[in-house]
Structures are given as C-alpha cells and as structure tokens.
C-alpha cells in the first residue's frame, strides 16, 4: 500500500509550516488545497503555461511539476508573499498595475513570480533577457508589452507613472478632507 501522508516542513512566504502531504500531491495542489493559497493558478499542468510559477529556494519553478514532498525543508515564495506584511505592494506589483501588465489577471501571479525571479538575477534586464525570462508564462490576453514595461519600471526603481495609484490616493485624500464641508452644509 502506498503511504497515505508524509510530514513535511517548509517555509511559505516567511512562515514555517509543518503539514502532512500525500506523496503524489504536487506543491501546487498543497498550496491551493491544503494551505488555501489560491493565488498560484492551475492551467496546463505540463509546465507550459507558467500560471503556477512560484519560487522554491529563490528559483522559479512550475509548482504543478514539483511534488510537495520534494519541498520538504524548502523556502517557498508565492504571489501572496510578494507584498510586505503591512500590505504595501512590492515594486513589481505596483509596476504591473501602473503599466497595464494585468488584464484578466489569471496568469498574473505566475508572471509576477517570473518577473521577480528575473529581476533577482538580472537587476537591469535587456529586452532579450526579459523575453527569454518571461517565455515560460503564457498571457493569452497578450499584454506582453505592458508586462515588459512593468519589468522595466521595477528595474529602474522609477516612481509609479503619473496616472498610477498615487494620483488616485491623492484624489481620495482630497475627497476625504472635503467631506467636512459637506457635513457643514447639512448643519
């Protein structure tokens, strides 16, 4: 009889987790079904689309092609771990928003993880390095040019584009401040 489960320990997004996993379950399945980290997506299950891309010990892998037991002792980073614990977006996340690197969003977690890994190895990637580094992540909405621009933005450490979140936040602040006068009118 095959084993039912094996205990493993792994660090997921900075937190040490001890769990029992079935030997035939992939890391993707364990992340999604056992740890409820559904940011990593399931699509092709043959290592072609990259929707399930995560980092294991700093390297990008298709988590559909990794058994969870293989990750025993590993350090795993998923899309849920990119933002800082206080919710501040990582530069690459903000850049994807600013540049339009997101459409339907289903491939986005995988794109982000590949971009994150690319930038770790190539802080200032050339266009060719970006094309090559992102080729394992299919985007059928095909906002590839915007994804490339987002990687450029994150690499340059540039502030968000003018039309980005910062403008919206400022407008929102002004709006919040103005509320007082509206209440004043009521009185």
């Amino acid at each position: 009889m095959p084993q039912t489960t094996l205990p493993i320990e792994l660090t997921v997004n900075g937190t040490l987790r001890g769990i029992d996993v079935a030997p035939h379950h992939t890391l993707l399945e364990v992340l999604r079904d056992d740890l409820q980290l559904t940011g990593s997506k399931e699509c092709c299950l043959v290592g072609e689309c990259g929707a399930c891309t995560i980092l294991v010990n700093g390297r990008s892998v298709d988590s559909c092609l990794v058994l969870a037991v293989e990750a025993d002792g590993a350090d795993v980073l998923t899309v849920e771990g990119l933002a800082s614990p206080d919710g501040r977006l990582a530069p690459i996340q903000a850049a994807f928003l600013d540049q339009g690197g997101v459409q339907c969003g289903f491939c986005t977690p995988g794109q982000l993880m590949s971009a994150h890994a690319l930038l770790a190895g190539h802080p200032h990637p050339t266009r060719a390095e970006i094309e090559e580094g992102m080729a394992g992540n299919l985007c059928r909405c095909a906002c590839y040019e915007q994804i490339f621009a987002a990687i450029d933005q994150a690499a340059s450490g540039a502030a968000p584009a003018v039309t980005g979140a910062s403008v919206r936040a400022e407008a929102g602040d002004a709006w919040a401040g103005a509320k007082t006068s509206a209440e004043g009118l009521d009185q």
């Binding site: 990119l82 933002a83 977006l89 997101v102 986005t108």
Partner: peptide, 8 residues
C-alpha cells in the same frame, strides 16, 4: 487590479 497582483 490590486487583487489581481496580490493573488487575492
């Protein structure tokens, strides 16, 4: 968009 880049 924010939910789409955080996995939420």
């Amino acid at each position: 968009g924010i939910d789409r880049v955080t996995g939420a």
